[in-house]
Design a protein around this nucleic acid. Structure first.
Lengths: 202, 202
DNA sequence: CGGCGTTTTGAGAGAGCTCAACATCGGTGG
DNA sequence: CCACCGATGTTGAGCTCTCTCAAAACGCCG
């Protein structure tokens, strides 16, 4: 759900970009909230540091992700945002976004709708992680991400990316895919996976 | 994030309750969206059925959870909602909620803020599930859920509940807790866990 | 006291992780 | 055009950790 899909051109026009070196902080916990952000490139991790000095990562955002949406409704950031690699972020000023929402309720509603959809997707993702078996987790992924015809899944990135999204090592994913193909459950082609219409026993 | 914390009394007053028998459907994929819901008691699972006839669970909601918030912005439900056990749900009519939002932008903003916070929490939860080791997952949980003093964590439910939230078996959790206590990293008391200020090597 | 759910501890097995080697593919530059 | 290089993809072998199945102690409530 890239920001460009729902952020009105008017708001985007009023945004700016900022470049971060690896390790540089975008904001720190306790800072006054001034904006929320969209990652253009690179990685930014949201983390909190506990008393023992250890860092607990809350989220790692990559290109296309937005972070700190909640800052629109909170006076302070509640965690640190650190560039994990050289990164470019688009900065959406809190004041401007909020006033745009006030001017145009349709815009505000679009934002809300996006958040509601995100909640939905994230919950699905958590449910997926409750599945231990690599094979079943993959099947769940196929069911949820099947194309309109329900017979295939289009892969967006590399298999390594998919492995990360599934919470598996890439080796485990390769083996599982190979296993599913051997058993005839799927058929792999370039950038796509065809699902065989097999009746499974649950 | 129980609905009562953010749903204005005005809206709640206009809501109604519905009772579901185990296995009964609250709505089906493709149905016209008429409301979103709050689970009062029991369990409701959101699921989709794939071509092979298998059911892929998207989410299991329990008491206090809200479901189908995204239905406010979509003409059709995109999955089935089935009561997993006898359940009671509070029904918030889409038309009424939307008109309340239109009348009172503050209300709409409160709703948006809640969703933004949920997105935040869900992302954190996913990050937690990326941690394999039971011990580290527990440490992450402690860091994120520490009380204001940062030296203790208050347990809301039973340890079994905690195990479920962490995505561990209760046995694994018990063992891990025992291990952490043996090593002096935590100290357990009734309903609370004290974190020892130890410097960890990462 | 009796019963039920939670908490604990034990032993064993399986699944995915780790480490390692190699194949493949696409791009780069001589 | 070919050699080189890095990242992705693939397969093998062993190990660790959590899950599973089992049994028992504990605590709460009627």
């Amino acid at each position: 759900m890239p920001a460009k899909d729902w952020l009105a051109p008017a708001i985007r026009a009023a945004s700016s970009e900022r470049t971060l070196k690896a390790g540089e902080a975008l904001f720190r916990q306790g800072d006054k909230t001034v904006a929320f952000f969209e990652i253009v490139s690179g990685r930014v991790r949201l983390a909190r540091v506990d008393r023992a000095g250890r860092e607990a990562v809350l989220h790692v955002a990559g290109a296309g992700d937005t972070i700190a949406e909640a800052s629109l409704f909170s006076p302070q950031y509640h965690c640190d945002a650190i560039a994990g690699a050289d990164a470019v972020v688009r900065v959406y000023s809190k004041a401007e976004v909020l006033s745009a929402f006030a001017r145009d309720p349709t815009l505000a509603q679009a934002f809300t709708a996006t958040l509601a959809r995100q909640v939905m997707n994230l919950r699905t993702r958590i449910e997926q992680r409750n599945i231990r078996s690599a094979r079943d987790r993959l099947r769940h992924y196929f069911s949820v991400n099947a194309d309109a015809d329900g017979r295939s899944v289009t892969l967006s990135g590399t298999l390594k990316d998919l492995a990360a999204e599934l919470g598996l090592t890439h080796e485990a994913l390769y083996r599982t895919l190979a296993g599913l193909e051997r058993s005839g459950e799927i058929k792999r082609t370039k950038g796509k996976i065809a699902l065989t219409d097999k009746k499974y026993k649950i």
